[in-house]
């Protein structure tokens, strides 16, 4: 397939030569793909702002002999990146989503449809501003990890299945643990924070938004610890995340 069509979200760009960029895309059918956008840094470029990070586009790509494809056409589906660039806090949340998506798609050209749909949905929700950005991010991270095989057990004890909620989380074991199974190194957590994580994972926004700032901070810390445990290297965008 020398020329193919797909839709995708721009994860990241980097300059190439004088006026080109390498664009890392997360596509619906072809997974993560890297492609060259020729002449894109010139102000006369026909691509305009469509291939900036977090833009959702319909693409035509040319598959080359190397691992790099070439973008031949890009039609805008939704300008999430442009909307989020005007709000620093939400932009940093989107950056964490994009970097997480890149890290969870470890192999190029391996489709990951559920993760792709989560990313598009997450960016859309973030751009709409209908829910607090910190909660949108944490919901995305919990679900992204879950569809990638690292789901956090939040309802029952991860070891024995004793119905919860339990006020202890073991990042290494993969979720909440009951008092009997609680391993060394498990973190104490408030029941409210564990409840919030479950609401975010299951999409109960009414429950999630009824929480206070302290509970949100605590659950965000647990999500960050869980995320870092499953990604070998730390995320570069995470230290820059600004929570409202």
């Amino acid at each position: 397939m020398p020329v193919y069509r797909d839709e995708g979200v721009v994860l990241r760009t980097m300059p190439l030569g004088e006026a080109d960029r390498i664009v890392t895309l997360f596509t619906r059918r072809n997974g993560r793909v890297r492609a060259v956008a020729k002449g894109i840094r010139r102000t006369s470029s026909r691509f305009g702002a469509r291939l900036e990070p977090a833009m959702y586009v319909d693409l035509q790509l040319h598959q080359g002999r190397s691992s790099l494809d070439t973008v031949t056409q890009a039609v805008l589906l939704a300008p999430y990146g442009a909307v989020l660039a005007g709000d620093y806090g939400r932009h940093t949340a989107a950056a964490v989503m994009l970097e997480t998506s890149e890290r969870l798609t470890s192999e190029e050209r391996e489709p990951a449809l559920r993760l792709f749909l989560l990313l598009v949905g997450g960016l859309r929700t973030l751009a709409s501003g209908e829910h607090p950005s910190g909660l949108v991010l944490d919901a995305f991270l919990l679900r992204a990890l879950a569809v990638s095989g690292y789901g956090m057990a939040l309802d029952d004890c991860v070891h024995c299945g004793e119905p919860g909620p339990h006020p202890s989380v073991s990042v290494a074991a993969g979720g909440i643990v009951c008092p009997r199974c609680r391993p060394r190194g498990a973190a104490s957590a408030s029941l409210a924070a564990v409840g919030l994580l479950a609401d975010l994972l299951h999409g109960d926004w009414a429950g999630a938004e009824a929480t206070d700032a302290r509970t949100r901070r605590e659950s965000a810390g647990l999500v960050a610890a869980y995320l870092q445990w499953h990604l070998e290297r730390g995320l570069r965008a995470l230290p820059h995340l600004e929570r409202a």
């Binding site: 006026a19 894109i40 840094r41 010139r42 102000t43 006369s44 470029s45 691509f47 305009g48 702002a49 469509r50 291939l51 900036e52 442009a82």
Partner: peptide, 15 residues
Amino acid sequence: GLPMGGDLEWADEVT
């Protein structure tokens, strides 16, 4: 006149 997506260094003087 400054289209989004480009670098400032590529903008001509008039634009």
